[in-house]
Design a protein around this nucleic acid. Structure first.
Lengths: 104, 104
DNA sequence: ATGTTAATTAACATATTTGCTAAATACAAG
DNA sequence: CTTGTATTTAGCAAATATGTTAATTAACAT
């Protein structure tokens, strides 16, 4: 599985996107990240592992707790793929628009 | 499943990203899209359905063939989510950098 | 009408994902 | 060193994803 596979796959789950949104506001422990969800500790742990494997977050132990923070590098990869093709897409769209306008 | 779920899930498969990359160069029939892959017709058909359900492409019949083209609107949604949070991420990263530089 | 090409749907096998509970590990505190 | 808190790993069940072959539908051409 390449980087884009794991990154987009990780982003496809709403719980994981919510976790990222939370982490955008600042780092948080696993327990803190779990609090808003009606979901077991192992379930959150797995979501975090998926995000970590996708290089979207990093975890470091701080005493008894594991602190999670965003990993901007991983997200950059995902954005770049979309942004790259967006250029083509918009170009195609523009051509279509031009075509439609010139047609009558 | 909401729009972002289906969009990112669709993007997580390399075959589907390759299909999108191909369509960025211009519309193509199902058969043409299939050609580069060692994969059955039903398999391609399903990939295209996933992309269509995610609003990333559109298909229209043209005589005997189905012509596929990109749907820029769907991609825009996916990009916007990433771009929105990228702002936070970069900000966090900047704060971290500042912190690390000021520390010594 | 019949055969051919393009593409989808049906039916099935296998692998992955997600969630749960119970058990294990890591650290802190008394 | 025993207990409590934070988190992960193990084991299991249900749902989802992906690919295959066989059968079906749509459009075209003879």
């Amino acid at each position: 599985m390449n980087t884009l596979d794991t990154a987009y796959s990780a982003l496809s789950d709403p719980t994981r996107r919510a976790i990222l949104a939370r982490l955008a506001l600042g780092e948080a422990s696993v327990g803190e990240l779990r609090a808003p969800f009606a979901i077991s500790a192992p379930a959150i742990s797995r979501h975090l592992k998926v995000l970590e494997d996708a290089a979207l977050i990093a975890r470091t132990r701080k005493g008894q707790t594991l602190v999670c923070r965003l990993n901007p590098a991983g997200l950059k990869t995902a954005r770049e793929w979309l942004d790259h093709y967006a250029a083509f897409w918009n170009a195609s769209f523009d051509r279509l628009n031009t075509y439609l306008k010139e047609k009558p």
